[in-house]
């Protein structure tokens, strides 16, 4: 494994861990962005540059901005940070840590993939062809999903204005 690959992988994992342990939400978002960028690097190394671009543009760009907006609007202040500290006592990590470790160990134990010759990278051209060829119905379904998300987000937001 390349040194670069090792670096990207470790940055991904570390970023995820840091994002999950921060007390201030904005810091966590920043770590999450770092994780996503590192993950995009991993994707490039897998030969999926199209997916990597999407990851950066949509995930690190759009979705994270959404998080930042919401954190700004609900304005979590000092007491919130203190409360997070209260919630993040070492004792709280016991059960979930054990559960996640078991899960991780089992999954790693299950991994036994074949290794084969190196494939050629898949271009955006191939993805587009199969996206609008074989999977065009799925694209339509996803558009339904997006529409449903849009409508429900709108509905919830409208209730906020008209409600109590």
């Amino acid at each position: 494994m390349h040194a670069l690959a090792l670096l990207a992988a470790s940055v991904t994992v570390m970023g995820a861990v840091m994002a999950m342990t921060r007390r201030v939400a904005v810091h966590a978002v920043l770590y999450l962005v770092v994780t996503l960028l590192a993950l995009a690097t991993v994707l490039v190394m897998l030969g999926a540059s199209f997916a990597a671009m999407l990851e950066i543009i949509i995930y690190a760009g759009a979705i994270m901005v959404l998080f930042v907006f919401v954190i700004m609007m609900i304005n979590l202040g000092q007491p919130d940070s203190a409360r997070e500290k209260e919630w993040l006592r070492p004792r709280a990590w016991c059960g979930p840590g054990v559960l996640a470790t078991i899960m991780c160990a089992e999954l790693l134990y299950c991994l036994n993939p074949p290794s084969g010759p190196a494939p050629a990278p898949i271009t955006a051209h191939d993805v587009g062809l199969s996206l609008f060829g074989r999977y065009v119905l799925m694209v339509e379904l996803v558009s339904f999903l997006l529409l449903a998300g849009l409508v429900s987000a709108f509905h919830i937001g409208r209730n906020r204005v008209g409600g109590r």
Partner: peptide, 30 residues
């Protein structure tokens, strides 16, 4: 390639577990 399939699965598993631990521990919905 820089990553073999096995390494990628390893990475994905670890990241998934970290996320799982996070969802179980954190009480803040964000």
């Amino acid at each position: 390639p820089a990553f073999s399939f096995n390494d990628t699965l390893l990475l994905a598993t670890i990241v998934f577990s970290v996320g799982l631990a996070g969802i179980l521990v954190r009480r803040n919905m964000v």
